[in-house]
Nucleic acid binder design. Sequence first.
DNA 1: CACTTGACCTGTCCGC
DNA 2: TGCGGACAGGTCAAGT
Length: 288
Amino acid sequence: MPELPEVETVRRGLAKLIIGKTIQSVSYDTPKGFPNAREDVKAFLIGASITDIRRRAKVLIIDLNNDYSLLIHLKMTGQLVFVGDVRFGAGHPNDSLVNTLPDKSTRVSFVFKDGSRLYFNDQRKFGWVRLMPSIEIPNIDFMKKVGPEPLEVDFTAKQFAERFTRRPKTNIKAAILDQSVIAGVGNIYADESLWGAKIHPKRLVSSITTEEFESLYTELRKVMNLAIEKGGSSNSTYVNAEGKKGSYMDFARAFRREGLPCPRCGTIIEKLRVAGRGTHICPFCQTL
DNA sequence: CACTTGACCTGTCCGC
DNA sequence: TGCGGACAGGTCAAGT
C-alpha cells in the first residue's frame, strides 16, 4: 500500500480522531497481526491514553501516556479505520466500510472508553503492529538504517543526490525504492517521479547526472505533496482513517496508465518489469 | 560485500 | 462458470 503520502494521510486523520482517547480493550490475532503480543501487551495497552501520532518513512507511531508506543506498518493492504459510533449502523455518513467492520481481514481491534473503535485490517497479512518502549524506537534496526524524509523543508537536492552514491551499480528505480536511501517512496511515486524527471527506470545510478538528480528531487517532492493533498492513491484496498479512498490516481501520469497516451507527448505508456516491480514509462520521454 | 530474486498471504482478473 | 497463472501499494531472507 501505502507509501509515504498514504501513511501520512492516515496519520493526519487519526491525529484528529484518536488523540486523547483511552484504550478500554484490545483484541488481535497472533502472531501475524501483533507479533509481540505474547509479551502480555494488554497490560500496557488497557487504560493507556493516546498522546501523539507520528510517522517515519511508512511506519506509523502511536505514542501512549505510559512511555510505550505502538509501531504499525501497513505493507501492501493494511488499513487503519476509525469507527466513531458503531450504533449509527447503515446510513452513517461515512463510507459503508465503517459499517461492516470488523470483517474477516480484521487483525487487531481497539475499543476506546467512549465506545469508538480503531480497526487494523490487512487482507494479505503482511502488515504488523508492535508495542515497545518509546525510548527504544530510535534503536531498532529499521530506524537506524532508514534514509531521510524527502519532504522535510531542510532536505536539499544536493543531499538527495548524495544519498544515491551508496548504490552506484543498481538501477535508479531499485535505488529510489530502497528505504535506506530515501524514506517512504514506493512503486507508485517512484514511477510518477521518474516520468516527471524523464529518467528511464533501468538507468544505472552512476549514469544519472546532477541535473537529473535535481529534477528527480523536485518531481518526487511535487508528486508526493500532490498525493498528500489528494488523500493518497487508492488502487484497490487503500483507505484513510475514516474508510475513504484517496484520489491521486485521477492525477497519475504514468502509473497504471499502460495503453494510454503520455500526458506530455502522446506516446502510448508502456508497462515493463524493473527491480521485480511492475513499472510504467513513456518510451519517448524516458530512454536508456 | 552489492545486488537480485523468491517468499510471505489473500484476492482479483484475464485467458483458455 | 471453472481453473490456472500472473499480478497487486512492501520488505526480508536467501541466493548469486
